[in-house]
Amino acid sequence: ILPTPTPTIDHAYSVRISDSYESKDQACQTILTGDDIDRLISLEKKQRCSFEGGSEVLDEAEPKVKYWSGKQSTEDVNYQSVDRCKSGPPRKLSKFNEYILTLMKLRLAILSFVLGDLFGVSESRVSQIFTTWINLMHMVLTPCIKWPSRRNIKKYMPRSFQTSFPKTTGIIDCTEMFIQKPKSPTAQSRTYSTYKSHNTFKCLVCITPSGAFSFISDLWGGNTSDRYITEHSGFLDSIRPGDEIMADRGFTIRDLLTDRRATLVIPPFTKKCKWGKGKRLSAADVVKTKSIAKHRIHVERSIRRLKLFRMLSQVMDIKFKPLANQMVKVSGFICNLDKPLVTK
């Protein structure tokens, strides 16, 4: 019977330290001799040389493997720390042209492929530019829609308010924007407006007596009541003691404003007649209703100015739902840059 040959060792790092080397155990410690330590160091050097040699071969065969080298890859990605341009394809449009493209999309609701033909970019690039810029404009411009101080309100208050409603600090109303019918039955029920007989988004707006937007809430489903939006949109956080808010008859929020020591001005409700059946307004109530309606109409004019942005006035595609809040608030800020709506 032939003796079994000793298996050959394929890799240097598989070499095992022989049991013949002297070692002593005391308690839980192992004492190695100097020769053992020298042998381990030489073995580690051989393993490192073999690994580095293999990586060099791979680097020559495929440059992309250099990503795994670590140090150089982090230096390449950190382009912001040095004077170098961003990696990737060059920008096809200047920042100003991208800004103009966003405003054209928001104001005129031009289709993306038409804007792509006008600016010489693809349809997907138009969508990317609009999404990026509308989010940037929302982040920068929305904080500029502020509740003004009472001193500034009185400074720019029209003469008609000074004589009839001198304490008025805001006029509120809710507006709705048509949207495409969602596929989900739950979303359909939450966005269906019985007032408009359509699926809508709804938001609360407040203007100053001069017609500038001082508050624009986030969008809610069209099925949400005006009182619920007023209570949960953050509008009440801006109310200060002594403020006077003008609203339509449907805003039953007198108790909410009373808790903040503010006053609600709405047209009077009809009362039961003493001389017959039904409900009617007295002569004094008719005069008061006309006076309130004459001044409250300015919030409708401000909403009309907001709806001149066709992305808000036409039926909104459901794919723009993540950008709907941004579009409304950016449009409201741009409206504030226009001339005062009420001057007399």
Rank of each mutant, 00 (worst) to 15 (best):
N78G: 06
L256E: 08
R296G: 08
R254D: 12
S233Q: 01
I41Y: 08
F269R: 06
G222C: 05
V82M: 08
L341N: 06
N325V: 05
G250Y: 00
K95T: 08
R261T: 10
T142C: 13
L264T: 04
I145W: 00
K307W: 06
D76F: 14
R150I: 10
N78E: 12
G278P: 03
K202P: 00
Y21H: 15
K274F: 07
Q29A: 15
N199P: 05
K64T: 11
F215K: 03
H198F: 10
V328G: 02
P166N: 02
L236H: 02
S122L: 01
E44H: 06
I9M: 13
T224W: 04
V15K: 12
V342F: 02
T132G: 11
D117V: 05
S112H: 10
T252A: 07
K45R: 13
F130S: 01
R261M: 14
N325Q: 02
T169P: 04
W147L: 00
L118Y: 08
P7G: 07
Q26K: 10
L256A: 11
S302V: 05
D25A: 15
K46D: 11
D10G: 14
G332L: 09
D248G: 04
I318Q: 06
V82Y: 09
I110A: 04
L111W: 05
T4F: 11
E176P: 03
D173Q: 05
N325S: 03
I110F: 06
L93P: 02
L337S: 09
I153Q: 03
M311P: 04
V65W: 13
K271H: 05
V126Y: 08
Y21M: 12
Y195D: 00
K339P: 12
K45D: 12
L312G: 08
R125Q: 15
L264A: 01
K277P: 10
I37L: 07
S331I: 00
E176F: 04
A12F: 06
R280P: 06
Q29M: 13
G54K: 10
F251L: 05
T270G: 05
D173E: 06
V126Q: 06
Y192P: 00
K105N: 06
L257I: 01
R16C: 11
L306W: 00
D338H: 14
I129C: 08
Y21V: 14
G221Q: 01
F113C: 12
Y79Q: 11
F51R: 07
F161P: 02
I153A: 01
C273T: 03
M104K: 14
Y79E: 11
T163P: 00
I17S: 08
K154R: 15
E22R: 14
P185D: 14
R301T: 01
D237Q: 12
M246Q: 04
I145A: 02
L236M: 06
W275L: 10
S160W: 11
K183L: 14
E176I: 00
G222I: 04
G221F: 03
N223E: 10
E98R: 09
R310C: 09
D36P: 07
T200C: 09
F51I: 05
I37E: 04
I245P: 00
I253H: 00
M157W: 01
R151A: 11
S42V: 14
V287A: 12
L264S: 03
D36R: 11
I216A: 04
W133G: 07
L118I: 15
R190D: 13
T132E: 14
R310T: 07
N152L: 15
R150F: 10
Q180G: 15
D25W: 15
K146F: 12
Y195Q: 03
S313W: 10
